Amino acid sequence: MSESEETFYTDDRWQNWLDRVAEEDLDPENEDSARLLLNLQDDTAIAVAKIVAAYDEDRLGEEEAIDELAEIRDIVLAEVEMDSEEKTMLIDGVQTSLVCVFYTAEEYVLGGPVEEGTVAEYVEAAAAAEADEDVDAALGFLVQAGTLIIDGEELPMDAVEDLEYGLVSEWVNGLDSLQSAMADPEVVEEDE
């Protein structure tokens, strides 16, 4: 398969996950339900990580990488209607977590890792921005943190544990999936 024909993600792949969620009797407190949602999120993060790796290895140019990321983003962030409001909300939570992953990958491809600061400093700045109700700044800080994570820095768990539940904690959850995907970009099996 030539590089230009490499498929990173498809509508069918996303739909298979959504079908699994639709079929399952989901309980967010249940470990299997939580794992299904995390696998769904991780699977998308792995596809994003593979695009970033293909870009880093010069198998994809900048424009191709951005186009591939946009294609996955359009698939994954499209509005989802489930038969239950709770499932729709759970999928929405996964989508929210992945927003930061997509922006991070785009920022990394276009500008590389941020020059200054640490992941922990950016997470703290994002939490402070969220507390000031500046959601755009909060997302911006986490995107910067994400470029460092792609570049090999670790997401410090102590900085994450103190986060209030909200958009920043959701986005950091996505960055955690991205970090795992960068470390081990193996496909999550849909039938686990």
Rank of each mutant, 00 (worst) to 15 (best):
N16G: 02
Y55V: 06
Q15R: 14
L90S: 06
A126Y: 00
E64L: 04
D58M: 08
E24L: 06
Y55S: 06
E124S: 13
L90P: 01
V48T: 03
E161V: 13
M157N: 08
S84E: 15
D42T: 13
G152R: 06
N39D: 15
D191V: 14
E81C: 02
L163D: 03
Y122Q: 11
L37W: 00
V123K: 01
F8R: 01
A54P: 10
E153Q: 15
R59Q: 14
E71M: 13
Q144P: 00
V52Y: 12
N30S: 12
S4A: 15
E192Q: 14
E68H: 13
G140I: 07
G146W: 00
G152T: 11
S33V: 00
A120L: 10
S84A: 05
D151E: 14
S33I: 01
A159H: 08
T44Y: 01
D43R: 04
E161F: 14
Q144K: 10
L60I: 02
T7C: 02
S177C: 13
Y122A: 05
R73A: 13
E190S: 10
L139K: 09
S84F: 11
W17I: 04
S4I: 12
G140E: 14
E130R: 04
C100A: 14
A181T: 02
Q95C: 07
T44D: 03
P113K: 10
A137D: 11
D27M: 00
D132W: 07
N30H: 11
V114R: 04
S84I: 07
F102R: 00
E81F: 10
L139P: 00
L90R: 08
R20H: 09
A137C: 02
A54W: 10
V143L: 12
F141K: 08
A181R: 09
L60Q: 05
L139M: 13
S4L: 11
A129N: 06
P185V: 08
E71V: 02
I91S: 09
E186H: 08
N30Y: 06
S180L: 14
